[in-house]
Design a binder for these strands. Structure first.
Lengths: 236, 236
DNA sequence: CGCCTCTTTGAGCTCAATCAAGGTGTGTGG
DNA sequence: CCACACACCTTGATTGAGCTCAAAGAGGCG
C-alpha cells in the first residue's frame, strides 16, 4: 500500500491505461471510471470475494493472479478461471438489482486489485456503450475458453494439462515463445481442480515431462522448456 | 413463410414482446430493432450458420430449437449449447470489425428464426445501453450453464445426463414440474455430444431409467415421468 | 516441535470408452 | 415398388485410463 504523497491511482495509471479494457480511452475518462475505487492487496490464498456473498464491488486485477473457484456438488473445488492483471472480476453481476458473487475469488501469491464500488458501475460504467461493449468482449473471451475446455472433455489428461499450460503462458506472455516461466505460483492440486482431474494424475503426467526435459519445476513455479513439445500434445 | 398480407413481423410480435430480451420495452422500440430483419425457417438438421463463416447477421430464435456445435480437435462434434425460442444467436461477435461465427448452428426439427443483419446491431442495438445489458445478461446465463457443466466433469455419466435433461426441461417449462415432454427431437448421440460421452453409454443409462419407469421415449421425444427421481441423481 | 499443505510413488479397481454385430425406420434412386 | 444407403437405436464383451486408497517424505509456519 503506497504511503507516499502521490495518489495510488496515479501510481498504477500508466499500466492501467495499457490494459485492453481501457486502451485508447482518454486518460480523464479512465480516471473517472476508477476514482471511486481503492487499491486492495491480498495475500496468498486470501479470498477477495466469496460465492453467494452480496456483491457490493467489482475489481480490476493489477498485480499477481486470482483463481475463480466454485464448489462442485460432490464437495470439491473446481477452478473456473484464472484472472491476470487487466482482467475485470465480478462486473457481470453488477447490473442485477441484488447481485451476489457467482464464484469465490482467491489470491494466488501476493496480488492486488483496484476495487470499485457497485454504484460506480450503475452510475457510470453501464451508461457508457463503449465500456459495456469491451466488458462484453472480455466475457466473450472467457466463454470461448470455457468452450475450448469442453471440446477436450474426451481427451486424455495429458492433453488437458498441456492445453492449460499453453493457455496460461499465452495469457501472460501474449506470444507463446519457446522457453518461459509461469509467473504465478500454481500447485498440482490447482491444475487438477482446473482440468477436472486429481493431483496424483497431474503429478504422473508432469513428472514424465520433467524426465523428458520438457518442463522444469522449481518450488511452486513451472518453467516450460520446450513449448513445441507441449503443443504437440494438443493435436489429437 | 407467411403469404398473407399481414407483415411477418406483426405475426410474431406478440410472442416476441414476451421474451426476456424485450419484455417491458415499448412496442415501437422492439419493432425498430427488428424491422430490418426477416423470418427464416430451417428444416431438421439444416445449418443456419457455419463455424468460421463471415458473420453478416445474427438471429432471434422463434420456433423449434437449434444446437450450437463446435468440432473438437479429435474430429467429433461437441454440442456447446441448445438454443430455444427467445434466445439470441451470434449477437456477441457482431461488435467485432470482421466477425466470424464461433460455432455451427444446426436446426433440430423444423425451426425458425428472425434473422437480423449486422448493420442493425452496429447502428441500433449497440447504441442502446438497455439492450446491450440484456444481451450481457443472456451471455452471463449461458456462461453459468457452461460452468455448471464444468462442475460435473468428475461426476458419473448418469448424473451428467440427468443434469442435461433437467436443464432442458427448465429452459422450456420455466418451472420444473413432475411429468413433462421435451418438445425438441433429441437423439442419444446428441445427448452424448452434449455431455462428452458416447451414444452407447447414454443408451445404457436411459434404458435403465425406462425400465424403472422414470422416463418414457417415443420416437425422438423424451418424456420425463418422475422428475424427482432424475433430480435425485444430481445430489452427489 | 508439531501441524499443515504439497508432493511423490505404488497397487488395485472401476467406470465408461471401444469394438463388434444386429435391428429399425426413413429417404433416395433405379 | 423395391433395394440400397444412411442415421439411429440396442446389446454384449473387452479393455484401459485414470480414480481411489494408502503411506511416506518435504518444506513452510505459528
Amino acid at each position: 500500500m503506497p504511503i507516499n504523497n502521490q495518489s495510488p491511482l496515479e501510481m498504477f495509471l500508466p499500466e492501467i491505461l495499457e490494459y485492453p479494457i481501457f486502451k485508447g480511452l482518454a486518460r480523464e475518462t479512465v480516471v473517472g471510471f476508477l476514482q471511486e475505487g481503492r487499491y486492495k492487496s491480498t495475500q496468498h490464498r486470501q479470498a477477495l470475494y466469496q460465492v453467494g456473498e452480496q456483491a457490493e464491488s467489482f475489481a480490476l486485477v493489477i498485480r499477481g493472479a486470482y483463481k475463480l473457484v466454485r464448489p462442485s456438488p460432490a464437495g470439491d473445488d473446481v477452478i473456473v478461471y484464472f484472472s491476470c492483471p487487466g482482467d475485470i472480476i465480478g462486473a457481470l453481476v453488477m447490473p442485477q438489482p441484488h447481485p451476489i458473487y457467482p464464484v469465490t475469488v482467491v489470491s494466488m501469491g501476493p496480488s492486488g486489485v483496484w476495487c470499485i464500488p457497485r454504484r460506480a458501475y450503475v452510475n457510470l460504467w453501464s451508461k457508457n456503450p463503449e465500456i459495456v461493449l469491451r466488458l462484453q468482449n472480455l466475457l466473450f473471451n472467457r466463454m470461448s475458453l470455457l468452450q475450448d475446455e469442453k471440446l477436450r472433455v474426451k481427451s486424455p489428461n495429458a492433453q488437458k494439462v498441456a492445453h492449460l499450460l499453453v493457455q496460461l503462458m499465452e495469457k501472460y506472455s501474449g506470444e507463446c515463445s519457446d522457453e518461459g516461466v509461469l509467473p504465478i505460483p500454481i500447485t498440482r492440486k490447482e491444475i487438477a481442480d482446473a482440468i477436472g482431474s486429481t493431483p496424483e494424475s497431474v503429478i504422473r503426467i508432469m513428472s514424465d515431462w520433467s524426465h523428458q526435459g520438457i518442463i522444469r519445476t522449481t518450488e511452486q513455479h513451472i518453467e516450460i522448456i520446450k513449448t513445441s513439445s507441449i503443443i504437440s500434445y494438443l493435436r489429437d
